[in-house]
C-alpha cells in the first residue's frame, strides 16, 4: 500500500473542515495509506502580500512535515503552486536545492487522483449536473485543466458544463480580496453571472479558495449556487 501524505491547508481547515476526511476516504479507496499533515500554511498569504520572511517561517514548517513522504497530496491547487513554484526561492544555495527536492513531491489532489493507476477501478457514479470552475493556479501554474475535466468525465451520470469565459479570474486572489474588495467583488459578480448562465446549481473546482469566495458571494446575493470540492464530489460518487 503506497504511503502518501495528505496536506490539509490552513484556510481549508478553517472554512471546509470536512474536506480532508472526504479526501482521505477517496485516497484510501484508491488503495493509498494516508497520513494527514495539518496545522500548517504554505506561506502564500504572506508571500503574496510581500512579506517574505514571514512566508519563509510558515512555509518551512510545511516542508519539514513533508520531508518523510514521497508524495504529498495537497487539497488546494493554489497551495500546491505556492509550494512547487515559489516557496523554494525563499532560500539560497544548498537550502534552496533541499527545499526544491521536497517541494517537487507536492501534487494537487485533482491531478494526483486523475493520474492514479487505480482510478479506473473506483466505479464513480453520480447523477446530476455540475459546472466546472477552472482556477487560475490550476490552469496556468499547474496545467491541470485536462486532468480535472478527465476526472469529471469518469463519473458516470454526471453532466459537466463549462463556463463561457473559464480563463477569467474569479477575483479572489488571497490578500487581493482583502486589500481591494471593490475590484474583487466586481470580478466575483462577473464570474457568478457566468456560472449562473450554465444553469448548473453546483460549481466544482480544484481550488477551494475560489469556491469560498464565490460561495460567500452567491449566498450574499441570494443566488442558488453551491460550491463543491473534488474530494466531496468524488466521495459522493463513491457512495
Amino acid at each position: 500500500m503506497p504511503s502518501v501524505a495528505l496536506f490539509d491547508p490552513c484556510y481549508m481547515a478553517a472554512l471546509r473542515p470536512a474536506d480532508a476526511e472526504c479526501a482521505r476516504h477517496v485516497l484510501r479507496s484508491l488503495g493509498d495509506d494516508v497520513t494527514l499533515i495539518d496545522g500548517r500554511c504554505c506561506g502564500q498569504p504572506a508571500f503574496n502580500s510581500g512579506y517574505r520572511n514571514e512566508a519563509r517561517t510558515a512555509g518551512r514548517e510545511v516542508l519539514k512535515a513533508a520531508r518523510p513522504f514521497e508524495t504529498v497530496v495537497t487539497l488546494s491547487g493554489s497551495c500546491t503552486s505556492m509550494v512547487r513554484h515559489y516557496l523554494p526561492v525563499l532560500w539560497d544555495g544548498d537550502r534552496r536545492d533541499a527545499a526544491q527536492r521536497i517541494a517537487g513531491r507536492f501534487r494537487d489532489f485533482v491531478s494526483y487522483v486523475a493520474n492514479h493507476p487505480n482510478v479506473g477501478n473506483l466505479g464513480l457514479k453520480l447523477e446530476g449536473v455540475v459546472a466546472y470552475h477552472d482556477s487560475c493556479h490550476g490552469r496556468r501554474e499547474l496545467g491541470i485543466t485536462s486532468d480535472a475535466l478527465g476526472l469529471l468525465a469518469r463519473i458516470q451520470g454526471l453532466e459537466v458544463r463549462r463556463l463561457a469565459y473559464e480563463e477569467e479570474c474569479c477575483g479572489f486572489g488571497g490578500s487581493f480580496a482583502v486589500k481591494l474588495p471593490e475590484i474583487s467583488v466586481a470580478m466575483m459578480t462577473t464570474k457568478l453571472d457566468d456560472a449562473v448562465l450554465t444553469g448548473a446549481k453546483v460549481l466544482v473546482s480544484g481550488d477551494f479558495s475560489c469556491l469560498a469566495h464565490l460561495e460567500a458571494g452567491a449566498r450574499g446575493l441570494g443566488l442558488k449556487l453551491e460550491t463543491w470540492t473534488f474530494p466531496e464530489l468524488l466521495l459522493r460518487a463513491l457512495e
Binding site: A14, L126, G128, V129, V202, R236
Partner: peptide, 25 residues
Amino acid sequence: DPRLFPEPSELHDRTLLQAATAERT
C-alpha cells in the same frame, strides 16, 4: 460587499445536483 461566509462543516445536500436548469451560456 455582499460576501457572506456559509456554515462550513457540513457536506452539501445532493438535491442541488439535480436542480440544474437549461444552459443559457
